[in-house]
Structures are given as structure tokens and as C-alpha cells.
Design a protein around this nucleic acid. Structure first.
Length: 362
DNA sequence: TAGGAATCACACATATGGTA
DNA sequence: TACCATATGTGTGATTCCTA
């Protein structure tokens, strides 16, 4: 039986003082509101104080029957996850960020003869883009200032033009060594095209080598007491480090995955659709039946016998190949089972393990 | 030390007024 | 009249301070 709104009593001790997203659900299980917080316990407490601050918050709190939380590791992850969950559930109390591609910040590569990078938000006036057609999107990024620092980093590191109309003579940016001077043919079209390719490769997957190079430059400027330049480089490093930090709630993946963390008493399943984390569910692990199969293997076979995503990412299975074969027989198509050792999939499992520990401790 | 309350900072939406 | 810049109000989360 689902709890009623009136029966919900907020207990701060049930919520961790960690970063994450929260989903406030009504009596019928519908998602009323999705939010994020650096400290979930404190943030949620603010909703359920006796004297709620405004009518809207009071109205929301009165309708809440359940609060589900999803723990993440970083603020960037919580922002992206919140954005994805709002788009997925369209909660009645979330007035912002509901548009398909609104809310967060992008960098775009123009499809001009001499392409350039520009900041972008859908549905907004993008003055720096002008009328230029778009060839490629990068992002979304968690904040405008972060996106802007990253954009500046890429444009200056690869000396790309920023001008909407090529000037007749090289501008100040060229003389400050921030632009290669393509307008005056100081670099050839081929060299400029190569710089654009390197910049887009960097934005798609930032390389640690560039970080080290900038760090060395920063130290050199600091040694020469050029603290203003060193400070600018420090900001670039921070932007780059944020980009390099592996976030797993939104990845570039073109198929569906379930991430399965098998614990000793239950299983936590993360639903990932086209790279976007959509939710978590804790399932009971039936250890009593099933013959020779271990509980985890039995769970996978029973849950995915009828319908399965293209890939299952599992923390442990005694014989993944045999389970794969059994699922192929049951579903009539191949279901890839991955037990990752490194990379984003391991990070996804770590996220599941963190949420498993929290949910089984309640 | 944890939790509650107040306050602050920031982003966004909307209203308003000036200018071409 | 359309466009743009600025002001104002609101929502949200973070921070700080106070108290038990």
C-alpha cells in the first residue's frame, strides 16, 4: 500500500548529509518535484519545517508521500542528474529546466568556412553565435561561468578566431597571442583547420597532457612574479580539472544499459538510457530458491528473461558467458554482459555501491 | 554537535523605460 | 513599433549564526 501524503513524517536522520538529487513523490508515486543539494539532509529539512516559507513550498510539502534520494559524487553530477530527471518526469512543481534542451550551457562549433567556438543556450539570444549555422554541440555544462572558462581555455589554447566577421587586419587578440591571425593569413587554412580539429577533440575528451602543460606555464609565470597571468592559468586549470573529472550520470552512449550492483542482501539496479541515468531501484535478492544458480545470477535471469536492454553492467557474476547465453535463448537476441575493470562503467558501479550502502542502511 | 532559522547569492522571468 | 537595457520580483540552494 502506498503511503498517503498526510502520513509522511520527515525524519532528518534517514537522509545523508551528502550531495545528491531528491525526488518528492505523491501518494500515487508520481514525481512532484526534483531537486539537488550539496547536503541532502539540510536541504530536505528546509521543506518540512513547521513554518514553511511560502505557499508553494507548503503546498508541495503537504502533498509529499515519499522522498527518494540518489547520491552522487560531485556537484556537476547532481546538476546533470537533476536536469535529466526533470526532463524525464516533468514534475508539476519544477517550473524551470523543463524544456528538452534548455537549462544548461553548451559550446557550439559553427559550420562556417573558418569555424569558431561560441557559447550557446537553446531558446536564448546567442549573440556571440550570431547567424552562423551550427556544426557540432559540446556539453551540456553545469554552469555558465564554468562553460565560459572552458570555452576561453579551448579558444586560447588552440588560437581560434572569435570574431563574427573576419576583420581586414589582425585584432588585439592576435597581438596578445590568443588568436593565430587567420584573418591576415598568419596561419594557413590547413593549419587553422587542424587547430579546430584539436580543439573539438579536446572538448570531446580533454587530455591530461594539456593540463600538465598549463600547470608548468602557471609555475613559470609565478616564478617570474607574474601573478596576474598565473592566476588566469590557475582558473583554466580548475576548468580543465572539472572537465576531466569523470561524471557518469550523462555519457555519450548510443544504447540502453542497466547497471546491476549485486550485494549480499539485495540488488541495486540503475536504469541508464542512451547514456542518461534515469533512476535507481533496490530489489530484494531471493536466496531461497533457484537450484544451483547463485542469487545474483538468478536475479539477472529472472528479471531480464522477457525484456532486457542491450547491455547489463554487473559488479559480479560467476559465469557471465553462460548467463549471456541463457539470456540470448530467453530473449531471442544478444544481451551483452560486462563486468568492468576500469573506466566510466566502474564509476557507475561505484555510484550504485554508494547508493546501495545508503538504501540498505535504512 | 546537529538542527533550525535567517540571510545571502545567484539565476531567471517579467515589467518598464529609453532609443532608433 | 520593435528592440534593447535595466530594474524588480521570485525561486532555489548555500552559508552563517544561534540554540538546545
Amino acid at each position: 500500500m502506498s503511503p498517503t501524503a498526510a502520513s509522511f513524517v520527515f525524519d532528518p536522520s534517514r537522509y545523508p548529509a551528502d550531495p545528491g538529487c531528491y525526488l518528492m513523490k505523491g501518494a500515487a508515486g508520481q514525481v512532484l518535484y526534483v531537486g539537488k543539494a550539496v547536503n541532502l539532509r539540510k536541504r530536505l529539512s528546509s521543506y518540512f519545517r513547521p513554518r514553511s516559507r511560502d505557499r508553494r513550498t507548503a503546498s508541495l510539502a503537504a502533498r509529499v508521500a515519499e522522498v527518494e534520494v540518489i547520491l552522487v559524487r560531485t556537484e556537476v553530477e547532481s546538476l546533470l542528474l537533476e536536469n535529466n530527471l526533470i526532463k524525464l518526469y516533468q514534475p508539476a512543481y519544477n517550473r524551470l529546466l523543463k524544456g528538452e534542451d534548455t537549462g544548461y550551457f553548451y559550446i557550439v562549433l559553427t559550420a562556417e568556412e573558418l569555424p569558431r567556438l561560441a557559447p550557446y543556450r537553446k531558446g536564448r539570444l546567442n549573440q556571440e553565435l550570431g547567424d552562423a549555422p551550427i556544426a557540432q554541440f559540446f556539453g551540456p555544462y553545469a554552469s555558465g561561468p564554468f562553460r565560459d572558462r572552458l570555452l576561453q581555455l579551448a579558444v586560447e589554447a588552440f588560437q581560434l578566431r572569435t570574431c563574427q566577421v573576419l576583420p581586414a587586419r589582425a585584432c588585439l587578440r592576435y597581438h596578445m597571442h590568443k588568436c593565430g591571425g587567420i584573418c591576415e593569413a598568419r596561419v594557413s587554412a590547413a593549419e587553422y583547420a587542424a587547430a579546430v580539429r584539436r580543439a573539438t577533440a579536446f572538448l570531446s575528451k580533454p587530455q591530461p597532457a594539456l593540463l600538465e602543460q598549463i600547470r608548468r606555464e602557471m609555475m613559470a609565470h609565478a616564478d617570474r612574479l607574474e601573478f596576474e597571468i598565473a592566476q588566469r592559468l590557475k582558473e583554466r586549470i580548475e576548468a580543465l580539472e572539472q572537465t576531466l573529472s569523470l561524471q557518469v550520470v550523462e555519457r555519450q552512449v548510443d544504447h540502453d544499459e542497466d547497471v546491476i550492483y549485486i550485494g549480499s542482501e539485495a540488488v541495486l539496479v540503475a536504469t541508464v538510457r542512451r547514456g542518461v541515468l534515469q533512476g535507481l531501484s533496490l530489489c530484494a535478492l531471493d536466496g531461497a530458491q533457484g537450484g544451483a544458480a547463485l542469487p545474483g545470477e538468478r536475479f539477472v535471469l529472472s528479471r531480464y528473461a522477457r525484456r532486457a536492454p542491450e547491455e547489463l553492467i554487473v559488479n559480479e557474476l560467476p559465469d557471465p558467458a553462460a548467463t549471456e547465453q541463457a539470456l540470448r535463448r530467453a530473449t531471442g537476441r544478444r544481451v551483452r554482459i560486462t563486468i568492468p575493470r576500469r573506466g566510466a562503467k566502474v564509476e557507475l558501479l561505484a555510484l550504485c555501491a554508494q547508493n546501495y550502502a545508503y538504501r540498505t542502511s535504512l
